[in-house]
Design a protein around this nucleic acid. Structure first.
Length: 374
DNA sequence: GAGTCGTGGTT
DNA sequence: TAACCAAGACT
């Protein structure tokens, strides 16, 4: 598709109205208080595929725990993942950690300020590198995120899927052409903020929009049909059995290996549950295969639903214990621990397993079996 | 370049 | 409820 470069008059109107709107309506986000490069970088990584409100919550906690690049670089991976717990896409946290160590090693503990150097950092791609260069360092680079895609799809009536290579090429070219030199920090944020607050996905606030006279979708009544998206993806239903094994008042947890989903996070053992198979029997087999423990009793715990990426999982957790009074030792490459229930708070679990833990404290049988106070 | 990487909110 | 998706990156 071919979209004409906006005229000088249209460009000037957009600059005036969107920058003016942003000056009045910008949310007071924490990283906007001083635009410290470290703050801008962390916020951009956290906000990837993440809603603003959650991002801000995690950001405040993160900055308290890791106030600067040096403290982040010096932290352990386990500490980093614990701070990230619940936010998802955990490679972002590992990349943040690795990039901080890279900055200490190669850039005197500072964020590099050139686009090519930023692009070399793990976890920093086309969007994030330009966001940091423009917002933190006030360099003239445009950004295209989901907000800009949606806003441009409406303003310029882009009628093919915005994620398609052709549309991406068009949108980036428009972003280049529209960028007001010397104002990239405010302009890029203005586009994204406008997309988030006024030109949202579900309900574009056209009645409040200052540029409806320039908006091709508004003029043709197609704003609600933009942006065009690709094929819908169906969720895949999966079921798992999970064993909370208690012995000598401690609970068995193991660390997931590198390179898999939830890498380096902690979990309870278990396995896939075949359709129609009895969960109480499956959990015995799954635990024996994974740990060689032979579980003696299984008490069903509340079922947990956990959706992640394209999967919709149902977890069938069981409270289990071992016949032997001695904590078994494992000879596996996998890291594992036997811990009292309160100590599980210090480890990072996936959201599904964290849900199981949060319900454990309410299970009186656990208190009895584990010998904890009722 | 299509698939994969989480999670909670919204519709 | 099932599907969509929110300041994407990586393979």
């Amino acid at each position: 598709m071919k979209i004409a470069t906006p005229s000088k008059a249209v460009t000037a109107r957009l600059h005036q109205d969107l920058l003016g709107w942003f000056a009045a309506a910008a949310r007071p986000l924490p990283w906007r208080e001083g635009y410290l490069p470290y703050h801008v970088w962390v916020s951009e990584i956290m906000l990837q595929q993440t809603q603003m409100e959650r991002g801000v919550t995690y950001f405040r906690r993160w900055i308290k725990r890791f106030p600067n690049i040096a403290t982040l670089a010096a932290a352990s991976e386990e500490e980093v993942l614990k701070e990230w717990e619940g936010l998802g896409y955990y490679s972002r946290a590992r990349n943040l950690h690795a990039a901080a160590q890279c900055m200490v090693r190669d850039f005197a503990g500072q964020l590099p300020d050139s686009l090519p150097e930023l692009l070399k950092l793990p976890g920093v791609g086309k969007y994030t590198a330009r966001a940091i260069a423009s917002i933190a360092f006030q360099q003239d680079y445009p950004v295209v995120d989901g907000n800009v895609e949606r806003l441009f799809a409406r303003l310029f009536a882009i009628d093919e899927p915005v994620k398609s290579p052709a549309a991406q090429s068009t949108i980036w070219a428009l972003a280049e052409a529209l960028l007001p030199s010397g104002q990239a920090r405010q302009w890029n944020q203005a586009l994204m903020e406008f997309g988030a607050l006024l030109c949202g996905r579900a309900a574009p606030c056209c009645n409040l929009c200052p540029v409806t006279d320039l908006c091709e979708s508004f003029q043709t009544g197609t704003a609600a049909m933009r942006p065009v998206t690709g094929e819908a993806q169906k969720g895949i239903v999966v079921n798992f059995v999970v064993a909370v094994i208690v012995a000598e008042q401690r609970i068995y947890v193991q660390q997931r290996p590198a390179g898999v989903r939830w890498a380096s996070l902690w979990e309870f053992p278990g396995g896939h549950l075949e359709d129609g198979a009895p969960p109480a029997e499956a959990v015995i087999r799954a635990v024996q295969e994974e740990t060689q423990f032979v579980i003696e009793t299984q008490i069903p715990l509340p079922v947990v639903r956990h959706a992640y990426t394209k999967y919709r999982a149902t977890l069938y957790p069981f409270l289990c214990h071992l016949p032997s009074p001695i904590l078994p030792t494992l000879h596996t490459a996998q890291n594992y621990r036997w811990l009292p229930l309160p100590d599980l708070e210090r480890l990072a679990f996936s959201a599904g397993h964290r849900q199981i833990i949060s319900r454990l404290s309410k299970v009186s049988d656990l208190n009895r079996i584990a010998g904890l106070p009722e």
